[in-house]
Every structure is written in C-alpha cells, then in structure tokens.
Amino acid sequence: MRLDEVNALLHPEPLRLETGYERLPDGVLHVACRTDLHRCNGAMFEWWFRSRPDTERYIWWHPVDHVSSAWEGGTPDTHVGSTHVVEEFFTGEPKAQLLIQFRDETEFFDPQAVQQARAEGRISGAVCGRTGMGWDAPRLPDGRLLGGRLLHIVRDTPWGCALRSHFFMGQDLPAAGHSPEAIEQMLPDRFGTALLQHCYNEFTFLSRFLPSLYIAQHRDVQKVEVPW
C-alpha cells in the first residue's frame, strides 16, 4: 500500500497487508499493525492523545520502550496541531529521539470519504501525523515535518475496537533525491520488524488501562458510553 492508497483503511474489508511490513518500489518502508483493543472505543482512543500523556503516563503506555514525553503547541480540545516530543526504544533498537506532529486526517484521506466513513460507523476514530527522527528533524517552510507518516484508524466493535496502524517511514526521502537503495540503508528491514512489535505492544498495554482511566476522567462531566 502506498500513501495515496490509504482510503482503503476507511473500509472494514481485510487489506492485503494487515500486519507486517513491505518495501515499496521507491524505498519507503511501509509497516502495518492490527491490534484488537478490548473494552476500548474510538472516543477513548482519540481522548488519550488529546490528554497529552506526560512522562509517567507515557511509560504506562509502554513500560519497556518509552522513556520521556513532552508536548508543544495545540489546544486542549484536539490532538491536531500539537507536537509530541519523545524518547523511546523500538524493540531492541538504539534509543531514538522522535517528533510526532499530529495533523487532521483530511491531510491524508479524502475529506468526503472520512466524513461518510464516520457517519456509517466504519471508523470511530483517527489519529494521524507526520514524524521526524531527531528533535532537529527538517521541516517545510510552513512548519510541517519532513520524514514519515503515521495513521491510526479505529473501528468500534461489539467487544471493543479494532485499531489499524500504518506507518510510511522515509516518505519524504524519494522526493529529496534519495535512491531506494540509500533509503533501505537508512531504514533497514529490521527497523520494520522492530516498529511492528513496538506498535503492537504499546497499544496492547494501553488497552489494559485506558477504559478505567477514561471513565475516571469523564464521570463528572458526561455519561460515558463503554463497549461492555
């Protein structure tokens, strides 16, 4: 799957690659991870990012790989527009400094298709963004990060929700003149395996405590709809 084919994530039908990684012809590393989040839903998932987890909660999220968490920009009512400044390991790889710049899903998906998918219940949450390796990662003149892309798409189910996470690592490198061989050297296949395992583990950890935390944070302000 290329980045321009991601509208397929808005439909529940199985994809050719639900969990695994592949090397695209231009050298970009595409990593896909399907995780079942029992007793969670899309509202909880989006709230977790809006809550801007600090270092303590970030370590709850992945007690082995996560190191530190800070946030820049944005507003409390949305994750869009904020940048997550983190240190973490990717399943045995050296510790990395990473920027995650959360963007509106319509930057990556057709706006009408997203609206229709939400209205029809085919998706219940979306967290999307640009990623940059290193806290000095390059940016476009308008401030957008250059590097990779991440797409988390949630669909509610009777038992909780299904999460599809797709990463396009090195997405901007071909346009910068890097050959497929050079990109593979920078982002070898072993990184695809490490990112896949890291992603599955962190969202499995999250699913264990997210429902209780969400209910505790919302019990005085709204009636919480829970999937059980």
Rank of each mutant, 00 (worst) to 15 (best):
A43N: 12
W48Q: 04
R23T: 14
D189L: 06
G73V: 01
R52M: 07
A8N: 02
E202H: 03
K223F: 14
E56G: 01
L15C: 02
V127R: 06
R130H: 02
T55H: 08
F108R: 03
F168Q: 03
I100E: 13
F203G: 01
D156S: 12
E105T: 13
G81D: 08
N41Y: 08
T193A: 11
G92Y: 00
W159S: 10
R155I: 10
E88A: 14
S51G: 05
L24D: 10
E184V: 03
H166V: 14
V221R: 15
C161E: 04
P158N: 05
T131H: 02
L9K: 00
H178S: 14
R164C: 06
I215N: 10
D136V: 09
D26R: 01
E202T: 02
P138D: 08
F203H: 03
I100R: 14
D142N: 15
W47C: 00
D142H: 05
M133Q: 04
R149P: 00
Q116V: 13
T91V: 12
T106N: 15
R103T: 10
A175F: 02
A194Y: 02
R219V: 12
R50L: 05
F203D: 01
R103N: 03
Q222E: 15
P14Y: 09
E22S: 06
A113C: 02
A137G: 09
D4Q: 15
V80P: 00
V6H: 00
M186G: 05
R208Y: 12
E13G: 11
E202V: 01
A176R: 14
V127T: 07
R208E: 10
F168N: 02
L15D: 00
R122S: 00
P180G: 09
E56F: 10
D156P: 03
G192W: 09
V224T: 14
Q222T: 15
Q101K: 01
R103V: 11
A162K: 14
P111H: 04
T78N: 09
G73T: 04
D26F: 05
L37F: 01
S212F: 15
G148L: 07
D54P: 01
V224E: 00
E56L: 11
L140C: 03
S179D: 13
Q112Y: 01
P63V: 06
G20N: 06
L145N: 00
V154S: 08
L173C: 09
G92W: 04
L150N: 06
N7A: 10
E225L: 10
P158R: 10
P188T: 05
L213A: 11
G134S: 13
R2E: 15
T55Q: 14
W159L: 12
Y214C: 02
E105N: 14
A32C: 09
F209S: 00
H38K: 15
A43L: 12
D36P: 07
G143K: 12
V80I: 12
Y58G: 12
H11G: 12
W48Y: 11
G27A: 03
L187E: 08
I123F: 01
V221H: 14
R219K: 11
F167D: 05
G147L: 00
T204V: 13
E184C: 05
L10Y: 03
P94N: 07
R23D: 09
A113D: 07
L210D: 00
L163D: 04
W48K: 03
V64C: 01
Y21V: 01
S207M: 04
P227T: 13
D26K: 07
F90V: 06
G192P: 09
Q101M: 06
T78R: 06
H11I: 10
G143I: 11
G27I: 11
E107M: 11
R164Y: 07
P227I: 09
M44E: 04
